[in-house]
C-alpha cells in the first residue's frame, strides 16, 4: 500500500511542481489521443451513418466487421501501422515511424471501428422515419443529415468518449509505433510501463493517476454537456 500512497503523493507533487517532463508527456498524450479521436470521428461518423441508414448489399457484413473491429487489439493495429510505416514498408518514404503522427494514425485506426459501430448503433435509436420527415419539411439532404446527427448528439458524445477512452488508455500501439522516445513519443501509458520496468513504482502509479485524472476530466466535461442538454428538455 506504500506504493499507492507514494504514487498519489508523487502524482500531486509532479503536477503541482510543474515537472516539465510530466507536463510534456501529459500534453503529448492529450494531443495525440484527442487528435486521433477527432480523426476517428471525422471518418467513423459518416461511415457509421452510411451503415445505419444505407440500403445496400453487404451492409450487414460491414456492420459485423465494424463490430468485430471494436475488439481489435491495439497491438494488432500498432503492428499493422508499424509495418506500413517501416522504412521498407509502402509508406516508409514518409519517415513517420516513431513520430506522434504515427501514433495518431495508429490510435485513429483503433478508434475508428469503435466510432463506426457505436455511431451506427446510436443512429439506429433514432426514429427510422426521421430523415424522411426532415426531408418532408423541406430539408436538403445535408441539412436532414445534420438534424439527424443533432438528434443523436447525446449518444454521439458517448461515442466520442468511448473512442477517446480506448486510445488514451492503450499502450500496445503507442509503444510500437511511437517507440516511447523520451520527449518525442512518450505518453502517459508508455511512461508508466517504463517506470514500472525501471522499478519506479510510485512514478508509474503517478502517471497512471494523471491518466485517470485526464479520462475523468474529459468524461466529466462531456457528461456536463449532456446534462445541460437534458436539462433544457
Amino acid at each position: 500500500m506504500d506504493v499507492l500512497g507514494d504514487g498519489l503523493v508523487e502524482a500531486v507533487r509532479l503536477l503541482l511542481t510543474g515537472d516539465q517532463d510530466t507536463w510534456a508527456i501529459t500534453g503529448l498524450t492529450l494531443r495525440v489521443s484527442l487528435t486521433a479521436t477527432v480523426i476517428a470521428l471525422l471518418i467513423g461518423v459518416p461511415l457509421g451513418a452510411v451503415l445505419a441508414l444505407g440500403r445496400f448489399r453487404g451492409r450487414r457484413v460491414l456492420l459485423a466487421i465494424a463490430n468485430t473491429g471494436m475488439g481489435l487489439p491495439p497491438v494488432v493495429v500498432g503492428l499493422f501501422v508499424t509495418v506500413l510505416l517501416w522504412r521498407s514498408g509502402p509508406l516508409g518514404a514518409l519517415g513517420l515511424l516513431y513520430t506522434p503522427t504515427a501514433m495518431v494514425i495508429a490510435q485513429a485506426g483503433i478508434a475508428t471501428p469503435i466510432v463506426v459501430a457505436l455511431t451506427a448503433a446510436a443512429l439506429h435509436q433514432v426514429d427510422p422515419d426521421f430523415l424522411l420527415q426532415m426531408r418532408g419539411l423541406g430539408a436538403t439532404r445535408v441539412r436532414a443529415l445534420g438534424a439527424l446527427l443533432t438528434e443523436a448528439k447525446l449518444p454521439l458524445l458517448a461515442v466520442g468518449m468511448a473512442g477517446f477512452g480506448a486510445v488514451v488508455s492503450e499502450v500496445g500501439a503507442a509503444q510500437m509505433v511511437g517507440g516511447n522516445l523520451a520527449g518525442e513519443t512518450r505518453v502517459l501509458t508508455t511512461a508508466a510501463v517504463l517506470a514500472t520496468s525501471r522499478g519506479q513504482f510510485a512514478l508509474a502509479i503517478a502517471f497512471g493517476l494523471v491518466l485517470l485524472a485526464i479520462a475523468f476530466a474529459v468524461n466529466l466535461a462531456v457528461t456536463f454537456a449532456q446534462h445541460r442538454q437534458t436539462a433544457t428538455r
Partner: peptide
C-alpha cells in the same frame, strides 16, 4: 426535387418529433 423541397411540407402518419421543446 429542390423545387418540391421549397414548396412542400409533409405530415406523416406517426408524428416524428425532435428531441427538443
Amino acid at each position: 426535387t429542390t423545387a418540391l423541397r421549397h414548396a412542400v411540407a409533409a405530415v406523416l402518419q406517426r408524428p416524428v418529433l425532435q428531441r427538443a421543446t
